[in-house]
């Protein structure tokens, strides 16, 4: 560490910090506080012209949200997306990571690259592509299903299938990311553990359950947290592919927030939705960290 608390180094430190802290303070912290205040007002289109039209209404936005059937619908849809999508995505990531990590596999880097390409591509663009892939008549998805004898599904038009359609897209788009993290985790497991287990006569599956899974627990926890947080914020898929339909079956929390805030201009209400999203993400992170601690102790 350079010197300690000398006048000049302190000055330089502040100079180096100023641009970042100003930007974060003014364009992140300040809006967060403002959003919190806004969520206690009836800020709407009239307040856009003159902020004096916004009135303090305490928790009314929040109590109104709790009685808003569309909000519950959005919360339910988002939870569906998270509860089904996250385990599916993590299982796919782990499965491909384990297979790819096998010593038998040739052309590892090429395969890894193929799995990874959806991760880096623009979500809006792939959502556009998948809209056609899900086309009931000429879409690739139904064609593949018909090849194995399954009847055509109206993926985006049937409220029962719209959410599974978005989940499949999300898993396809994201599994490569967590796969990379899992591969690194797998490579950190000492090979001697497997050798010892093999000498004891453990099967492949037993080795996976008693060595691989426990050794990957910290990695899995990390992946679960970032995936859950990411999935709770899903927006572009329903915006591009279904506009939240059919029958609001794909309306997500962020899509509802966007509509209320920037279409209906009910910004106080919209801010309240954003804070509920924050609260949920916060609780889940806390819960998962607690679970981890409980397991370690």
């Amino acid at each position: 560490m350079i010197n300690t608390y000398s006048q000049s180094t302190r000055h330089s430190a502040y100079l180096f910090l100023t641009p970042a802290l100003t930007a974060i303070g003014v364009f992140f912290f300040l809006p967060v506080l403002a959003a919190l205040l806004m969520s206690f007002t009836d800020f709407d289109i009239y307040s856009l012209g003159d902020i004096k039209n916004a009135r303090f209404i305490a928790f009314r936005n929040y109590s109104q949200l709790l009685q808003d059937p569309l909000f519950w619908k959005a919360l339910k849809n988002t939870s569906y997306f998270v509860i089904i999508g996250v385990p599916l995505s993590i299982a796919t990531s782990l499965g491909t990571a384990v297979l790819l990590n096998s010593k038998l596999v040739k052309l590892k880097s090429l395969l890894r690259l193929a799995y990874f390409i959806p991760v880096i591509t623009t979500l809006v663009a792939v959502a556009v592509v998948w809209r056609y892939i899900y086309h009931p008549r000429f879409g690739l998805m139904n064609y593949l299903l018909e090849l194995i004898g399954i009847n055509a599904i109206d993926w985006l038009g049937d409220p029962h299938w719209s959410m599974p359609a978005l989940i499949i897209l999300a898993v396809w788009k994201n599994f490569g990311y967590n796969m990379i993290i899992f591969i690194a985790g797998l490579q950190n497991i000492p090979l001697e553990l497997y050798e010892a287990a093999r000498i004891d006569g453990a099967s492949r599956w037993q080795q996976f359950r008693t060595i691989t899974l426990p050794m990957l627990a910290p990695t899995t926890l990390f992946i679960t947290i970032i995936t859950v947080i990411g999935y709770f914020q899903f927006f572009a898929e329903p915006y591009v592919m279904t506009r939240g339909g059919p029958l609001n079956s794909t309306l997500s929390i962020v899509l509802y927030m966007y509509r209320e805030g920037f279409h209906s201009w009910k910004m106080g209400y919209s801010a309240a939705i954003a804070f509920i999203l924050f609260f949920i993400v916060f609780l889940i992170t806390l819960l998962q960290l607690r679970l981890q601690k409980a397991r370690v102790v």
Partner: peptide, 17 residues
């Protein structure tokens, strides 16, 4: 610790600003 705050929270005030 503030990294946990979702960006969407800031969007309404940021737009007005």
């Amino acid at each position: 610790s503030t990294m946990i705050i979702p960006g969407q929270v800031t969007m309404m005030p940021l737009f007005l600003m």
